[in-house]
Amino acid sequence: MNRRKLLSFLGITALLGSTGFAWAAITRSRNPYYQGPITENFDGLRFSDGRTVNKGLLDVLKWQTSKRQREAFPARYPAPPQDKPPARVESLRVVHLGHASFLYQVAGLNLLVDPVYAERASPFSFAGPRRVNAPGVAFADLPKIDVVLVTHNHYDHLDLGTLAALHQRDQPRMIMPLGNDTIVKARNPEIRAEAHDWNTKLALSDAVSIILAPTYHWSARGAFDRRMALWCSFVIETPSGRLFHIGDTGYHDGSLYERIGAEYGPFRLAALPIGAYEPRWFMGDNHMNPEEAVKVMLALRAEQALGHHWGTFQLTDEGVERPPEALKLTLAAAGLPEERFRPMRPGLSWEA
Rank of each mutant, 00 (worst) to 15 (best):
A229W: 01
R227A: 12
I210L: 05
A220Y: 02
P214R: 14
R227Q: 08
R226D: 05
A186E: 10
N188E: 11
W198F: 13
I211R: 09
L204K: 06
F224C: 08
L212A: 04
L202P: 00
I210A: 01
T182H: 05
V208F: 08
L230V: 07
S219Q: 04
A195R: 01
R187G: 15
N188G: 13
R192Y: 09
I191A: 15
F224P: 05
D181M: 04
A213C: 14
E190D: 15
A220R: 01
L202H: 01
E194P: 04
A223C: 14
A203D: 15
L230A: 12
T182A: 15
A229L: 10
L212Q: 01
D197R: 11
T215M: 12
T182P: 00
D206W: 08
T200C: 05
S219D: 06
T215W: 04
R226W: 05
A186R: 06
H217P: 01
H217L: 11
K201F: 04
K185R: 11
V208A: 11
A220S: 12
V184F: 07
I183W: 01
L212N: 00
A229M: 10
A213V: 05
E190Q: 06
G222Q: 03
A195P: 03
R227S: 09
P214D: 05
A213M: 07
A195W: 04
A186N: 09
H217M: 10
F224Q: 02
A220W: 01
I210D: 00
E194T: 11
I211N: 04
S209L: 10
A207Q: 13
D225W: 00
H196E: 13
S205A: 14
F224A: 09
D181P: 01
H217Y: 13
M228I: 08
W218G: 08
I211P: 00
P189Q: 08
D206K: 15
M228S: 03
V184W: 04
S219E: 12
V208H: 04
N199V: 03
N180P: 11
R187V: 15
V184A: 13
A220I: 03
T215K: 11
P214G: 12
L202Y: 00
E194F: 09
A195D: 14
K201E: 13
S219M: 08
R221E: 11
I211H: 03
I183T: 09
A213Y: 04
V184K: 02
R226A: 11
R221I: 11
I183M: 06
I210C: 03
S209V: 01
R227C: 12
P189L: 14
I210P: 00
E194Y: 07
D225Q: 03
S219G: 13
V208Y: 05
S219C: 10
M228C: 06
A223T: 10
N199M: 09
A203Q: 09
S205L: 14
Y216Q: 09
R227T: 10
N199C: 05
N180A: 14
